[in-house]
Amino acid sequence: MNMPKSNFISQTLAIFKKDIQLELKTKEIISSMLLFSMLVVVVFSFLFEPGNIEQAGIAGGVYWMALIFAGLLGLGKSMQAEINGGNLEALLLSPISRNAIFYGKLLSNIAFLLCIQLIMLPLFVVLYDTNLVSHISMLAVILGTTYAFSLLGTLFSLMAARSSTREILLPILLLPMLVPVILGAIQATNGALFQDAVSTYAVWIRLIVVYDVVFTAIASLLFEVVVEE
């Protein structure tokens, strides 16, 4: 039967909408990510007395480590929903662009990470006594790093989906690739925490932006090949 063909954007949005609908019902991804990230932020806050100058030095690292490891947890759970019941296979059997699957999953992974940060960031500001949210440049760092993590995380989690060792394969593939962007995010965050002029850490923000652009192109080209194999 000839069906009216759905376009790339509607296919991508259908997958995004399905992920959100699934999460609203199960609450599995957000709850586990939130619990983990809050635990890390709270536990590390006990290491230093309030106002300790050393605390500001590690605060950026704590924030991004909490987020990245919580993100790994979220990626694993998001992919598990596709593996259970053979849904990834069903998506690949559907007459949709492979990139629509990729970008649909990417959008939902970004949404989950941003949701976590909406709750984590105020907690972080209180516990670490920072004025991080007052820096507009931090918005660029948060968005750029969240995008980079979700982009490569989505790609590698789909690549690892068919492997029996996917839980360990994902961090092994993902974390080394993310080193430049993690480094950039930590440096830029610490720069903002120490009230440095934006120009002193703008180079790290530029690094994140360039990383995002380059890997968007690579992921778009690679994904179709990866899933076909």
Binding site: K18, L22, K25, T26, E28, A81, N84, G85, E89
Partner: peptide, 9 residues
């Protein structure tokens, strides 16, 4: 052999 269904939906 697999149902191709999301069990949370």
């Amino acid at each position: 052999h697999q149902p191709f269904l999301y069990d949370g939906l």
